[in-house]
């Protein structure tokens, strides 16, 4: 599983907002230039970005293996036709290029996950999204990250208990209802206790966040992101004969 690991790579030292901007710019330019040459350039840039994040692309690929069947199936299905000649390879070119592009975008975004802590991401979101929605998202994200392992353990315990009582032999509908009901009850009980604890500790909309500062190192990456976005807009507006 891909998760945050502390380190001192280039991407670790970047401000999380810079990394978010880069991911969006990278995806936009990949969408604008979905051609063999364009994707080669985008792939090289993505490789450099992952190297800057000290992240092994194969490890990220393994973490994202669940999307691979869809990426492989799309061009294959596009090539199939009902009736002779049954297989039209040229029909699969567009979807195959799209699959390559999507894979590159998903894998490059894995670099952010590995190099950014949840607390930094929270601070970035709360400072970028204005007002209450930003504050709600920031607080909520930290609570989700904190309670996911706890609820996962609850659900595993419920599944164990179900298996011990031969609940696994029950029909699917009943199994789903049993596991989900027990999970919901645990979650709501935890929510009530959490709500009480947060009120007792005077939960505020404006807590002190970890400091975020744009450093000299962010400059070139922000510049590159703006360049990528401009290149994408130029292409989408039909002005660029490049690639």
């Amino acid at each position: 599983m891909l998760h945050y690991q502390p380190g001192d790579s280039l991407a670790h030292r970047l401000d999380p907002r810079t990394k978010l901007l880069f991911q969006i710019a990278f995806a936009t330019v990949a969408f604008a230039y979905t051609t063999p040459r364009g994707l080669l350039a985008v792939g090289v840039l993505g490789g450099l970005a992952l190297a800057g994040a000290d992240t092994n692309p194969l490890r990220v690929l393994w973490a994202y293996r669940f999307v691979l069947p869809f990426l492989l199936a799309a061009p294959l299905v596009a090539m199939l036709t009902l009736g002779s000649p049954w297989l039209v390879p040229s029909e699969g070119v567009g979807p195959a290029l799209a699959s390559v592009r999507n894979l590159v975008v998903v894998v490059v975004c894995g670099g952010y996950v590995r190099t950014t802590s949840i607390a930094d991401s929270r601070a970035a979101i709360q400072r970028t999204v204005p007002g209450r929605p930003g504050q709600f998202l920031g607080l909520g994200i930290e609570l989700v990250a904190r309670f996911l392992p706890v609820l996962q353990r609850d659900l595993l315990a419920i599944l164990d208990a179900e298996a011990a009582r031969l609940g696994t032999d029950r029909p699917l509908r009943e199994r789903i209802a049993t596991v989900a009901t027990a999970g919901l009850n645990r979650a709501f009980r935890r929510a009530d206790r959490l709500s009480m604890a947060m009120q007792a500790r005077c939960l505020s909309w404006n807590p002190t966040l970890p400091p975020l500062r744009f450093g000299w190192i962010d400059g070139p990456v922000v510049g590159l992101s703006v360049l990528l976005l401009t290149a994408a807009v130029v292409r989408l507006a039909g002005l660029s004969p490049l690639l």
């Binding site: 709600f136 609820l151 709501f188 929510a191 947060m198």
Partner: peptide, 14 residues
């Protein structure tokens, strides 16, 4: 907020 966050975590657990 507590319920929404716990529900989001439960969907993730699901």
């Amino acid at each position: 907020i507590a319920r929404a966050a716990l529900f989001a975590a439960l969907v993730a657990g699901f």
